[in-house]
Nucleic acid binder design. Structure first.
Lengths: 197, 197
DNA sequence: TTTCTTTGCTAACATTCGTTAGTATATTAT
DNA sequence: ATAATATACTAACGAATGTTAGCAAAGAAA
Protein backbone atom coordinates (compact mmCIF):
# COMPACT_ATOMS: atom_id res chain seq x y z
CA UNK A 1 0.00 0.00 0.00
CA UNK A 2 1.46 3.28 -1.11
CA UNK A 3 1.94 5.63 1.77
CA UNK A 4 2.70 9.35 1.59
CA UNK A 5 6.30 9.82 2.60
CA UNK A 6 7.01 12.53 5.10
CA UNK A 7 10.15 14.12 6.44
CA UNK A 8 10.54 14.89 10.12
CA UNK A 9 8.51 17.87 11.33
CA UNK A 10 6.11 17.77 8.40
CA UNK A 11 2.63 16.36 8.22
CA UNK A 12 1.15 14.49 5.27
CA UNK A 13 -1.12 17.44 4.69
CA UNK A 14 1.89 19.69 4.22
CA UNK A 15 3.24 17.34 1.59
CA UNK A 16 -0.04 17.54 -0.27
CA UNK A 17 -0.21 21.33 -0.04
CA UNK A 18 3.31 21.60 -1.33
CA UNK A 19 2.68 19.32 -4.31
CA UNK A 20 -0.53 21.23 -4.96
CA UNK A 21 1.47 24.45 -5.18
CA UNK A 22 3.67 23.17 -7.96
CA UNK A 23 0.75 21.60 -9.78
CA UNK A 24 -1.42 24.71 -9.55
CA UNK A 25 1.52 26.79 -10.71
CA UNK A 26 2.12 24.54 -13.69
CA UNK A 27 -1.43 24.03 -14.91
CA UNK A 28 -3.53 26.61 -13.10
CA UNK A 29 -5.97 25.81 -10.31
CA UNK A 30 -8.92 24.86 -12.48
CA UNK A 31 -6.94 22.77 -14.92
CA UNK A 32 -5.16 20.81 -12.21
CA UNK A 33 -7.28 17.86 -11.15
CA UNK A 34 -7.32 16.03 -7.86
CA UNK A 35 -6.34 12.93 -9.81
CA UNK A 36 -3.27 14.78 -11.12
CA UNK A 37 -2.43 15.79 -7.58
CA UNK A 38 -2.94 12.26 -6.29
CA UNK A 39 -0.53 10.95 -8.90
CA UNK A 40 2.07 13.55 -7.96
CA UNK A 41 1.71 12.55 -4.32
CA UNK A 42 1.81 8.84 -5.20
CA UNK A 43 -1.60 7.82 -3.99
CA UNK A 44 -5.21 7.44 -5.20
CA UNK A 45 -7.37 10.55 -5.46
CA UNK A 46 -9.81 9.52 -2.77
CA UNK A 47 -7.00 9.04 -0.29
CA UNK A 48 -6.21 12.71 -0.31
CA UNK A 49 -9.45 13.36 1.51
CA UNK A 50 -8.13 11.68 4.64
CA UNK A 51 -5.90 14.74 5.00
CA UNK A 52 -7.71 17.66 3.41
CA UNK A 53 -11.30 18.87 3.30
CA UNK A 54 -11.49 19.96 -0.31
CA UNK A 55 -9.56 21.18 -3.33
CA UNK A 56 -10.43 24.74 -2.42
CA UNK A 57 -8.93 24.32 1.02
CA UNK A 58 -5.58 23.77 -0.68
CA UNK A 59 -5.93 27.13 -2.38
CA UNK A 60 -6.85 28.78 0.92
CA UNK A 61 -3.77 27.41 2.60
CA UNK A 62 -1.52 28.60 -0.18
CA UNK A 63 -3.02 32.05 -0.62
CA UNK A 64 -3.29 32.94 3.05
CA UNK A 65 0.04 31.37 3.92
CA UNK A 66 1.71 33.76 1.50
CA UNK A 67 -0.48 36.75 2.38
CA UNK A 68 0.26 36.34 6.08
CA UNK A 69 3.99 36.24 5.52
CA UNK A 70 3.86 39.49 3.56
CA UNK A 71 1.60 41.16 6.10
CA UNK A 72 3.84 40.22 8.97
CA UNK A 73 6.87 41.53 7.16
CA UNK A 74 5.09 44.79 6.46
CA UNK A 75 4.44 45.14 10.20
CA UNK A 76 8.13 44.72 10.90
CA UNK A 77 9.23 47.20 8.28
CA UNK A 78 6.76 49.85 9.36
CA UNK A 79 7.93 49.68 12.95
CA UNK A 80 11.53 50.38 12.01
CA UNK A 81 13.03 53.82 12.30
CA UNK A 82 14.91 53.90 9.03
CA UNK A 83 14.61 56.12 5.98
CA UNK A 84 11.78 55.64 3.49
CA UNK A 85 14.15 54.51 0.79
CA UNK A 86 15.60 51.92 3.16
CA UNK A 87 12.11 50.65 3.93
CA UNK A 88 11.22 50.47 0.26
CA UNK A 89 14.40 48.59 -0.48
CA UNK A 90 13.70 46.14 2.30
CA UNK A 91 10.19 45.50 1.04
CA UNK A 92 11.48 44.98 -2.48
CA UNK A 93 14.21 42.65 -1.27
CA UNK A 94 11.71 40.60 0.67
CA UNK A 95 9.46 40.29 -2.35
CA UNK A 96 12.31 39.22 -4.57
CA UNK A 97 13.50 36.75 -1.99
CA UNK A 98 10.06 35.22 -1.58
CA UNK A 99 9.65 35.01 -5.34
CA UNK A 100 13.03 33.35 -5.75
CA UNK A 101 12.80 30.91 -2.85
CA UNK A 102 9.08 30.19 -2.54
CA UNK A 103 8.32 30.58 -6.21
CA UNK A 104 5.43 28.15 -6.54
CA UNK A 105 3.35 29.28 -3.57
CA UNK A 106 3.86 32.97 -4.25
CA UNK A 107 3.04 32.54 -7.90
CA UNK A 108 -0.12 30.59 -7.15
CA UNK A 109 -1.23 33.09 -4.55
CA UNK A 110 -0.66 35.86 -7.09
CA UNK A 111 -2.40 34.34 -10.09
CA UNK A 112 -5.00 31.93 -8.80
CA UNK A 113 -6.69 33.78 -5.95
CA UNK A 114 -9.59 34.52 -8.28
CA UNK A 115 -10.78 30.99 -7.69
CA UNK A 116 -11.25 31.51 -3.99
CA UNK A 117 -14.85 31.91 -2.96
CA UNK A 118 -16.41 34.15 -0.38
CA UNK A 119 -15.78 34.89 2.42
CA UNK A 120 -12.18 33.96 1.66
CA UNK A 121 -12.18 35.86 -1.59
CA UNK A 122 -13.18 39.20 -0.09
CA UNK A 123 -10.86 38.65 2.82
CA UNK A 124 -7.93 38.02 0.53
CA UNK A 125 -8.73 41.00 -1.67
CA UNK A 126 -8.93 43.24 1.37
CA UNK A 127 -5.57 42.10 2.67
CA UNK A 128 -4.07 42.73 -0.72
CA UNK A 129 -5.56 46.21 -0.99
CA UNK A 130 -4.40 47.03 2.51
CA UNK A 131 -0.88 45.86 1.82
CA UNK A 132 -0.62 48.05 -1.26
CA UNK A 133 -2.01 51.04 0.59
CA UNK A 134 0.64 50.66 3.29
CA UNK A 135 3.34 50.27 0.66
CA UNK A 136 2.11 53.40 -1.12
CA UNK A 137 2.04 55.30 2.17
CA UNK A 138 5.74 54.59 2.69
CA UNK A 139 6.50 55.88 -0.78
CA UNK A 140 4.45 59.00 -0.16
CA UNK A 141 6.35 59.70 3.02
CA UNK A 142 9.51 59.34 0.97
CA UNK A 143 8.21 61.88 -1.51
CA UNK A 144 7.44 64.37 1.25
CA UNK A 145 10.95 63.79 2.61
CA UNK A 146 12.41 64.50 -0.81
CA UNK A 147 13.99 61.05 -0.68
CA UNK A 148 11.82 59.88 -3.54
CA UNK A 149 10.96 61.35 -6.93
CA UNK A 150 7.58 62.99 -7.29
CA UNK A 151 5.49 60.26 -8.83
CA UNK A 152 2.09 58.71 -8.27
CA UNK A 153 2.67 56.33 -5.38
CA UNK A 154 -0.04 53.75 -6.20
CA UNK A 155 1.35 53.53 -9.73
CA UNK A 156 4.83 52.98 -8.35
CA UNK A 157 3.55 50.18 -6.13
CA UNK A 158 1.79 48.58 -9.02
CA UNK A 159 4.94 48.71 -11.13
CA UNK A 160 7.16 47.34 -8.39
CA UNK A 161 4.93 44.43 -7.43
CA UNK A 162 4.26 43.34 -10.97
CA UNK A 163 7.85 43.76 -12.04
CA UNK A 164 8.89 41.41 -9.27
CA UNK A 165 6.29 38.88 -10.25
CA UNK A 166 8.17 38.79 -13.53
CA UNK A 167 10.74 36.64 -11.78
CA UNK A 168 8.46 33.88 -12.92
CA UNK A 169 10.02 34.31 -16.39
CA UNK A 170 13.45 34.17 -14.86
CA UNK A 171 12.62 30.84 -13.25
CA UNK A 172 11.47 29.38 -16.52
CA UNK A 173 14.31 30.81 -18.55
CA UNK A 174 17.13 28.56 -19.69
CA UNK A 175 19.98 31.04 -19.38
CA UNK A 176 19.46 32.24 -15.86
CA UNK A 177 21.80 34.78 -14.33
CA UNK A 178 22.28 33.87 -10.66
CA UNK A 179 19.81 34.95 -8.00
CA UNK A 180 22.08 37.52 -6.35
CA UNK A 181 22.78 39.21 -9.66
CA UNK A 182 19.10 39.21 -10.50
CA UNK A 183 18.32 40.82 -7.17
CA UNK A 184 20.94 43.51 -7.68
CA UNK A 185 19.65 44.32 -11.13
CA UNK A 186 16.10 44.60 -9.90
CA UNK A 187 17.04 46.76 -6.95
CA UNK A 188 19.05 49.02 -9.25
CA UNK A 189 16.19 49.55 -11.64
CA UNK A 190 13.28 49.58 -9.23
CA UNK A 191 14.66 51.32 -6.16
CA UNK A 192 17.27 53.30 -8.07
CA UNK A 193 14.54 54.52 -10.39
CA UNK A 194 12.61 56.00 -7.46
CA UNK A 195 15.45 57.81 -5.74
CA UNK A 196 15.58 61.55 -5.94
CA UNK A 197 18.97 62.56 -7.32
CA UNK B 1 -35.35 33.39 -32.21
CA UNK B 2 -32.44 35.19 -30.60
CA UNK B 3 -29.96 36.30 -33.19
CA UNK B 4 -26.40 37.51 -32.54
CA UNK B 5 -26.42 41.23 -33.16
CA UNK B 6 -23.60 42.60 -35.27
CA UNK B 7 -22.41 46.07 -36.11
CA UNK B 8 -21.37 46.98 -39.62
CA UNK B 9 -18.00 45.56 -40.66
CA UNK B 10 -18.03 42.86 -38.03
CA UNK B 11 -18.87 39.19 -38.33
CA UNK B 12 -20.77 37.18 -35.74
CA UNK B 13 -17.58 35.29 -35.07
CA UNK B 14 -15.89 38.51 -34.08
CA UNK B 15 -18.64 39.23 -31.60
CA UNK B 16 -18.11 35.82 -30.04
CA UNK B 17 -14.34 36.23 -29.87
CA UNK B 18 -14.75 39.61 -28.23
CA UNK B 19 -17.16 38.33 -25.60
CA UNK B 20 -14.84 35.39 -25.05
CA UNK B 21 -12.02 37.81 -24.31
CA UNK B 22 -13.87 39.47 -21.47
CA UNK B 23 -15.12 36.18 -20.12
CA UNK B 24 -11.71 34.53 -20.22
CA UNK B 25 -10.24 37.61 -18.56
CA UNK B 26 -12.83 37.54 -15.81
CA UNK B 27 -12.87 33.83 -14.97
CA UNK B 28 -9.86 32.36 -16.69
CA UNK B 29 -9.96 30.14 -19.76
CA UNK B 30 -10.63 26.87 -17.98
CA UNK B 31 -13.26 28.23 -15.61
CA UNK B 32 -15.21 29.97 -18.35
CA UNK B 33 -17.68 27.55 -19.90
CA UNK B 34 -19.18 27.61 -23.36
CA UNK B 35 -22.56 27.94 -21.67
CA UNK B 36 -21.33 31.07 -19.90
CA UNK B 37 -20.13 32.43 -23.20
CA UNK B 38 -23.40 31.57 -24.91
CA UNK B 39 -25.31 33.46 -22.27
CA UNK B 40 -23.07 36.50 -22.67
CA UNK B 41 -23.65 36.39 -26.41
CA UNK B 42 -27.39 35.86 -25.96
CA UNK B 43 -27.78 32.47 -27.56
CA UNK B 44 -27.69 28.74 -26.76
CA UNK B 45 -24.31 27.03 -26.34
CA UNK B 46 -24.68 24.77 -29.36
CA UNK B 47 -25.37 27.74 -31.62
CA UNK B 48 -21.88 29.06 -31.10
CA UNK B 49 -20.57 26.17 -33.13
CA UNK B 50 -22.12 27.56 -36.28
CA UNK B 51 -19.41 30.23 -36.10
CA UNK B 52 -16.41 28.71 -34.38
CA UNK B 53 -14.69 25.35 -34.46
CA UNK B 54 -13.91 24.95 -30.78
CA UNK B 55 -13.29 26.69 -27.48
CA UNK B 56 -9.58 26.44 -28.09
CA UNK B 57 -9.91 28.23 -31.41
CA UNK B 58 -11.14 31.26 -29.47
CA UNK B 59 -7.95 31.23 -27.45
CA UNK B 60 -5.88 30.94 -30.63
CA UNK B 61 -7.55 33.93 -32.17
CA UNK B 62 -7.01 36.03 -29.07
CA UNK B 63 -3.41 35.02 -28.40
CA UNK B 64 -2.16 35.29 -31.95
CA UNK B 65 -4.13 38.43 -32.68
CA UNK B 66 -2.28 40.15 -29.87
CA UNK B 67 1.08 38.53 -30.62
CA UNK B 68 0.91 39.59 -34.26
CA UNK B 69 0.18 43.19 -33.37
CA UNK B 70 3.21 43.33 -31.10
CA UNK B 71 5.44 41.63 -33.63
CA UNK B 72 4.43 44.00 -36.39
CA UNK B 73 5.07 46.98 -34.15
CA UNK B 74 8.50 45.64 -33.28
CA UNK B 75 9.28 45.45 -37.01
CA UNK B 76 8.35 49.10 -37.41
CA UNK B 77 10.38 50.25 -34.44
CA UNK B 78 13.47 48.33 -35.46
CA UNK B 79 13.45 49.83 -38.91
CA UNK B 80 13.48 53.40 -37.58
CA UNK B 81 16.67 55.41 -37.37
CA UNK B 82 16.14 56.91 -33.94
CA UNK B 83 18.11 56.61 -30.69
CA UNK B 84 17.85 53.51 -28.56
CA UNK B 85 16.09 55.37 -25.80
CA UNK B 86 13.53 56.66 -28.27
CA UNK B 87 12.93 53.13 -29.50
CA UNK B 88 12.55 51.84 -25.98
CA UNK B 89 10.12 54.59 -25.14
CA UNK B 90 8.08 53.84 -28.23
CA UNK B 91 7.89 50.17 -27.37
CA UNK B 92 6.84 50.97 -23.82
CA UNK B 93 4.23 53.46 -25.02
CA UNK B 94 2.80 50.90 -27.40
CA UNK B 95 2.57 48.32 -24.65
CA UNK B 96 0.85 50.72 -22.31
CA UNK B 97 -1.53 51.81 -25.02
CA UNK B 98 -2.44 48.24 -25.90
CA UNK B 99 -2.94 47.41 -22.25
CA UNK B 100 -5.15 50.43 -21.70
CA UNK B 101 -7.24 50.15 -24.85
CA UNK B 102 -7.32 46.43 -25.56
CA UNK B 103 -7.17 45.33 -21.98
CA UNK B 104 -9.13 42.10 -22.17
CA UNK B 105 -7.42 40.56 -25.18
CA UNK B 106 -3.92 41.52 -24.06
CA UNK B 107 -4.57 40.25 -20.57
CA UNK B 108 -5.91 36.94 -21.82
CA UNK B 109 -3.04 36.49 -24.23
CA UNK B 110 -0.65 37.20 -21.37
CA UNK B 111 -2.13 34.94 -18.72
CA UNK B 112 -3.97 32.15 -20.50
CA UNK B 113 -1.62 31.09 -23.28
CA UNK B 114 -0.65 28.10 -21.16
CA UNK B 115 -3.87 26.45 -22.23
CA UNK B 116 -2.95 26.48 -25.89
CA UNK B 117 -1.90 23.10 -27.19
CA UNK B 118 0.80 22.19 -29.64
CA UNK B 119 1.67 23.22 -32.27
CA UNK B 120 0.11 26.54 -31.29
CA UNK B 121 1.70 26.48 -27.85
CA UNK B 122 5.29 26.14 -29.08
CA UNK B 123 4.63 28.65 -31.82
CA UNK B 124 3.35 31.19 -29.34
CA UNK B 125 6.19 30.60 -26.91
CA UNK B 126 8.72 31.06 -29.69
CA UNK B 127 7.19 34.35 -30.79
CA UNK B 128 7.27 35.55 -27.22
CA UNK B 129 10.89 34.55 -26.72
CA UNK B 130 11.82 36.20 -30.00
CA UNK B 131 10.06 39.42 -29.11
CA UNK B 132 11.89 39.67 -25.81
CA UNK B 133 15.23 38.95 -27.46
CA UNK B 134 14.66 41.78 -29.92
CA UNK B 135 13.64 44.10 -27.10
CA UNK B 136 16.74 43.17 -25.12
CA UNK B 137 18.92 43.73 -28.18
CA UNK B 138 17.69 47.31 -28.43
CA UNK B 139 18.50 47.88 -24.79
CA UNK B 140 21.96 46.39 -25.26
CA UNK B 141 22.65 48.71 -28.15
CA UNK B 142 21.59 51.54 -25.88
CA UNK B 143 24.07 50.37 -23.26
CA UNK B 144 26.91 50.28 -25.78
CA UNK B 145 25.93 53.82 -26.90
CA UNK B 146 26.06 54.97 -23.28
CA UNK B 147 22.42 56.02 -23.63
CA UNK B 148 21.34 53.41 -21.14
CA UNK B 149 22.60 52.40 -17.69
CA UNK B 150 24.72 49.29 -17.47
CA UNK B 151 22.19 46.67 -16.43
CA UNK B 152 21.29 43.15 -17.48
CA UNK B 153 19.12 43.69 -20.54
CA UNK B 154 16.95 40.55 -20.24
CA UNK B 155 16.17 41.50 -16.66
CA UNK B 156 15.21 45.00 -17.75
CA UNK B 157 12.87 43.58 -20.39
CA UNK B 158 11.32 41.28 -17.84
CA UNK B 159 10.73 44.17 -15.47
CA UNK B 160 9.29 46.45 -18.12
CA UNK B 161 6.89 43.95 -19.60
CA UNK B 162 5.58 42.72 -16.27
CA UNK B 163 5.32 46.20 -14.83
CA UNK B 164 3.11 47.18 -17.74
CA UNK B 165 0.95 44.13 -17.29
CA UNK B 166 0.26 45.60 -13.85
CA UNK B 167 -2.10 48.02 -15.60
CA UNK B 168 -4.55 45.24 -14.96
CA UNK B 169 -4.71 46.44 -11.35
CA UNK B 170 -5.27 49.97 -12.54
CA UNK B 171 -8.26 48.83 -14.58
CA UNK B 172 -9.80 47.13 -11.60
CA UNK B 173 -9.04 49.92 -9.19
CA UNK B 174 -11.81 52.24 -8.05
CA UNK B 175 -9.80 55.44 -7.81
CA UNK B 176 -8.19 55.50 -11.20
CA UNK B 177 -5.91 58.34 -12.22
CA UNK B 178 -6.54 59.04 -15.89
CA UNK B 179 -4.86 57.09 -18.65
CA UNK B 180 -2.54 59.87 -19.80
CA UNK B 181 -1.30 60.46 -16.29
CA UNK B 182 -0.79 56.74 -15.79
CA UNK B 183 1.22 56.58 -19.00
CA UNK B 184 3.42 59.49 -17.95
CA UNK B 185 4.09 57.98 -14.56
CA UNK B 186 5.03 54.67 -16.08
CA UNK B 187 7.29 56.23 -18.68
CA UNK B 188 8.98 58.28 -15.97
CA UNK B 189 9.74 55.31 -13.82
CA UNK B 190 10.45 52.70 -16.48
CA UNK B 191 12.22 54.65 -19.19
CA UNK B 192 13.57 57.32 -16.85
CA UNK B 193 15.01 54.56 -14.68
CA UNK B 194 17.01 53.19 -17.60
CA UNK B 195 18.51 56.43 -18.82
CA UNK B 196 22.16 57.08 -18.22
CA UNK B 197 22.50 60.39 -16.41
C1' DT C 1 -43.10 32.98 -54.26
C1' DT C 2 -39.76 29.52 -54.27
C1' DT C 3 -35.15 27.97 -53.31
C1' DC C 4 -30.90 28.02 -50.86
C1' DT C 5 -28.00 29.30 -47.08
C1' DT C 6 -27.30 30.91 -42.66
C1' DT C 7 -28.21 30.67 -38.06
C1' DG C 8 -30.68 29.17 -34.26
C1' DC C 9 -32.90 25.43 -31.24
C1' DT C 10 -33.50 20.95 -28.41
C1' DA C 11 -31.63 16.77 -27.03
C1' DA C 12 -28.16 14.00 -26.13
C1' DC C 13 -23.34 12.05 -26.07
C1' DA C 14 -19.05 10.75 -23.78
C1' DT C 15 -15.75 12.41 -20.59
C1' DT C 16 -13.95 14.47 -16.69
C1' DC C 17 -14.57 16.46 -12.38
C1' DG C 18 -14.72 16.75 -7.03
C1' DT C 19 -16.24 14.06 -3.59
C1' DT C 20 -18.37 10.23 -0.58
C1' DA C 21 -19.29 5.47 1.23
C1' DG C 22 -17.63 1.42 2.59
C1' DT C 23 -13.85 -1.49 3.43
C1' DA C 24 -9.12 -3.26 3.90
C1' DT C 25 -4.52 -2.69 5.70
C1' DA C 26 -0.98 -0.65 7.96
C1' DT C 27 0.86 1.80 12.27
C1' DT C 28 0.57 3.07 17.11
C1' DA C 29 -0.99 2.53 21.85
C1' DT C 30 -2.37 -0.52 25.56
C1' DA D 1 -1.04 -9.89 21.41
C1' DT D 2 -4.93 -7.03 21.16
C1' DA D 3 -7.29 -2.89 20.48
C1' DA D 4 -7.57 1.53 18.47
C1' DT D 5 -6.36 4.78 15.14
C1' DA D 6 -4.62 6.48 10.84
C1' DT D 7 -4.35 5.87 6.21
C1' DA D 8 -5.06 3.68 1.93
C1' DC D 9 -8.03 1.32 -1.57
C1' DT D 10 -12.10 0.32 -4.91
C1' DA D 11 -16.32 1.76 -6.63
C1' DA D 12 -19.48 4.87 -7.59
C1' DC D 13 -22.28 9.27 -7.40
C1' DG D 14 -24.13 13.49 -9.49
C1' DA D 15 -22.87 17.50 -11.71
C1' DA D 16 -20.61 20.06 -15.28
C1' DT D 17 -18.06 20.14 -19.50
C1' DG D 18 -17.19 20.53 -24.77
C1' DT D 19 -19.26 19.01 -28.64
C1' DT D 20 -22.37 16.72 -32.24
C1' DA D 21 -26.73 15.36 -34.71
C1' DG D 22 -30.90 16.53 -36.45
C1' DC D 23 -34.27 19.76 -37.17
C1' DA D 24 -36.71 24.47 -37.41
C1' DA D 25 -36.87 29.13 -38.58
C1' DA D 26 -35.16 33.24 -40.50
C1' DG D 27 -32.87 35.95 -44.28
C1' DA D 28 -30.99 36.30 -48.91
C1' DA D 29 -31.06 35.06 -53.73
C1' DA D 30 -33.65 33.42 -57.66
Amino acid sequence: MARIKIEKNSSRKEVIVSKAASLFREKGFKAASMRDLAEAVGVEAASLYNHIKSKTELLHELCFGVANRFMQHMDEVESKKTSSIAKIEELVRFHINEMVNHYEEVYVSDREWKHLSDPYLSNFQNQRRMYRKRFAAIIETGIRNKEVKMIDAPTAVLIILHAISGIESWHRSTQKINAAELTNNMITILVGGLKNV
